[in-house]
Amino acid sequence: MSTSPLIDIDEIIERYPGKPEFLIFLLQDIQAAYNYISREALELVCDHTGVPFSTAYATATFYQSFSLKPKGEHNLRVCLGTACHLKGAPRIVEDLERRLGIKAGETTDDLQFTLETVNCLGACALAPVMVADEEYVPGATSKKVEKLVKDLAAS
């Protein structure tokens, strides 16, 4: 993941005018920079945009892109779109759940892996597909998944 904890939160906040309509833009940029949205960051966003904290919190929890908890160093996203579902994607998710000892949507205790599911990555011809960090894994199988987790854990 190319996250840079060096980005200053104030620098992000200043990217947009202090208006409520830029709430989602700010949350997206913060999520991209830090991989999650901390309470402090959310409060700063509220001060800047004038959005009440409760509204900002409701918005941040409504959208799946935002996470209020830190995510793992490696992000595994398995496609559960229709094409992938028919070609065995649930098997891939279950396989990863067993290997990592977490459920989809969770992060391992050592903050190494986050396992997520998405709906269609636009590469349906290569179903089942997953994305490890930014890398696509076409035609995912148990065997590929095994190697992938091993390689990422060692990296």
Binding site: G81, T82, H85, N119, C120, C124
Partner: peptide, 11 residues
Amino acid sequence: EGDPGAFMDRT
């Protein structure tokens, strides 16, 4: 483009 399994608009 919400339909899971479609990528017309993306393309």
